[in-house]
Design a protein around this nucleic acid. Structure first.
Lengths: 213, 213
DNA sequence: CTGTGTGAATTTTTTCACAGCT
DNA sequence: AGCTGTGAAAAAATTCACACAG
């Protein structure tokens, strides 16, 4: 059906959702694509084109109803449900993720966390008791988990990905600094601060070697 | 000079660098664009095209020398120097970033960290003594800092960005869940796990509503 | 008038395909 | 024979510009 929607478009939708919230907070009930674009850092035409992939949401001459469009985008993104998520790896980073407060209001809740270190297993972080990594596959199957957050070192990550995909995970938020290979029908999103920094320095070096800022 | 290099190309270079390291670890000295592409998840043609923006690095009939290409890409990305970076915000997340071990080997080192909370200021995390936020601008200027990592709550982030940009920062790694507006010549990279998760659920919902996987 | 929705035009990015070097 | 570097072709994404609705 709607499988021909460009991925770049989908990537922008959460942004729009966030911008709409900013308008709602300012008690603005109606926005034009120009308003929304200014807030999102996107051209008005792009907003309209993006939305047009999913239907007609605006009123000509007026714009978009903030609340209605929020609801529509929430539904389109599948955020009208709360997604159970598991965390793999409860080291420094994993602990920070477990105590991260923003997942829940945004449609996600961490239901369980796993680690391979026997010292960590059994301890409690943010009211979640850490389970041994051996139980992952069973847990995923029994609880029909679709999303996993991966916060383990790079070398363990590759094998773990195979395992959890085999068990039924369809979306992975990966913090390991690797480029995982996953089947077509599995979504993967990488969080990679070093990569991000390294793409910045290219421009910064240019600036440095160029007198006129 | 080389200002007409597409940003998508630059975004891929750190990936190539990482793949090259994988080959080096396997003691492979020579790789073809096909090899490198398989490792990076990119087509061979794209690798060759990307590299062609910067010069000729391969030998026809053979491929690329792993070590030489590593050095070239390192230099191109401006990673043949180590970049001093400051951290703004030493809460849960900031602390995790301070103790993150991967920045240093990748060309970055955190030289100082700032916070607005008087309880946190003066304490020591990972051998860095947290400074009061009021000293940021002076510090940036005095030490010619070009890169900042922003790990403060969203509402404080907007103002802070203006301040540090004014003081001379040219690259920001932003962990706040906002879409910052910065001048053209300032690089910004957002780390936004919620946004990443929200783009995944679109596909996951489709899968769910679609019987054939 | 104002601002959406959308085909058409433009620009950007990717892929193709092959000449030429080793 | 093998693989790069690169113009040309194709595909994808963005922007334009305007008919039409409120």
């Amino acid at each position: 059906m709607s499988l021909d929607i460009p991925d770049v478009v989908i990537q922008r939708l959460p942004q729009y959702l966030r911008s709409l919230r900013a308008f709602k907070n300012k008690d603005i009930a109606l926005v034009s694509s120009t308003n929304l674009g200014a807030e999102s850092g996107v051209t008005p035409a792009q907003i309209r084109k993006d939305l047009s992939y999913f239907g007609k949401f605006g009123k000509q001459g007026q714009g978009y109803n903030v609340e209605a469009l929020t609801n529509d985008l929430t539904r389109i993104l599948g955020l009208d449900q709360s997604w159970p998520v598991i965390l793999l790896g409860v080291g420094r980073l994993g602990k920070a993720i477990l105590t991260y407060p923003d997942f829940t209001p945004e449609g996600f809740y961490i239901v369980s966390a796993f680690d391979s270190d026997p010292v960590i297993v059994g301890t409690k972080v943010a009211s979640i008791t850490i389970k041994p990594v051996e139980q992952i596959k069973t847990y995923i199957r029994d609880n029909n988990i679709k999303i996993a957050i991966l916060a383990v070192p790079g070398d363990s990550a590759v094998n773990l990905i195979d395992e959890i995909v085999q068990a039924g995970v369809k979306g992975i938020l990966n913090y390991a600094p690797i480029t995982p290979k996953v089947p077509e029908n599995v979504q993967i999103q990488n969080i990679d601060p070093v990569h991000s920094l390294q793409t910045m320095t290219f421009h910064l070096s240019e600036i440095n070697s160029n007198p006129n800022n």
